[in-house]
Write a protein that binds this DNA or RNA. Structure first.
Length: 255
DNA sequence: ATGGTAGAGGATCTA
């Protein structure tokens, strides 16, 4: 089984790239973030032509998440239960014995801002929900844009970013709390090349200089982590014409 | 010191 996640920063713009990517990589499930599409505008038919079904929840201009899959999604949830949130940031679905959760964690803008406070309220709500999901579904994967670089290895210049949004201790603690539920960062199950990142700012030639952060992650429950054989980031997509600022993360499981 | 680029939508907001 191959699982992947990609923040596409507008599915309207990136649809041809997503279709090409599906054909080339044939994931069982691909989680998308920042689709920026209302549900009535979701390109279900084009994706179906590539051999994938879609479940999605979106809004105009901002946010929006989806799961594309070869098999039919069941038990679909499009919000964190009992958490007031107008922003479309989560979708969960069951595929046989596997539970797949796609998340788009708030960016947080800057430490101390209102958006940062929202991020730090959002993450514990996510954790509480995932704790319940893990009890129901032992074979659980949580994929998405976490907007958190878990440690200094995940930041091109950790001194420059120290304490800043995406890297602050409170955010890293919140990420640690997700791991403490019994989830593992699939990328760190394996030896990885140094300076591997998943996001590069569009500005200041950041990609060319490899000034990136690893903020997109695939977390796996123990039962899935035990069967994970690889995890890598597909940096090649960032070199395409009109790229997303994020690259896909892919995990393969011997299941 | 605090820009710079991209997307959506049609002036700014978000990232």
């Amino acid at each position: 089984m191959k699982l992947a996640t990609w923040n596409v920063n507008s599915l309207k713009v990136r649809l041809p790239q997503v279709i090409d990517w599906l054909h080339a990589h044939q994931p069982d499930m691909l989680c998308l973030q920042e689709t920026k599409l209302t549900d009535n505008n979701f390109p279900q038919d084009e994706i179906a032509e590539a051999g994938y079904q879609s479940v999605f929840t979106g809004q105009k201009t901002y946010n929006g998440v989806a799961i594309l899959s070869k098999k039919k999604a069941e038990e679909v949830l499009t919000a964190i239960p009992d958490f007031e949130d107008e922003q479309k940031r989560v979708i969960a679905a069951t595929f046989g014995e596997f539970r797949i959760i796609c998340i788009y964690v708030p960016n947080g803008e800057a430490v101390g801002s209102e958006k940062y406070d929202y991020k730090l309220k959002w993450l514990p709500a996510l954790a509480e929900w995932l704790q319940a999901e893990l009890k129901t579904y032992p074979k659980l994967a949580v994929l998405g844009d976490y907007n958190i670089a878990p440690d200094d290895r995940d930041v091109y210049d950790s001194k420059l970013w120290e304490g800043k949004v995406l890297c602050s201790q409170a955010e890293r603690d919140a990420f640690g709390n997700l791991l403490n539920l019994g989830l593992m960062d699939s990328f760190r199950l394996f030896d990885q090349p140094e300076k591997t990142y998943s996001w590069w700012d569009y500005r200041m030639l950041a990609f060319r200089r490899n000034r990136g952060l690893r903020i997109d992650h695939i977390l796996l429950s123990k039962k899935l982590a035990d069967n994970c054989v690889t995890c890598h980031i597909d940096k090649a997509t960032r070199k395409l014409e009109r790229p997303s600022d994020h690259a896909p993360v892919i995990a393969e499981l011997s299941l």
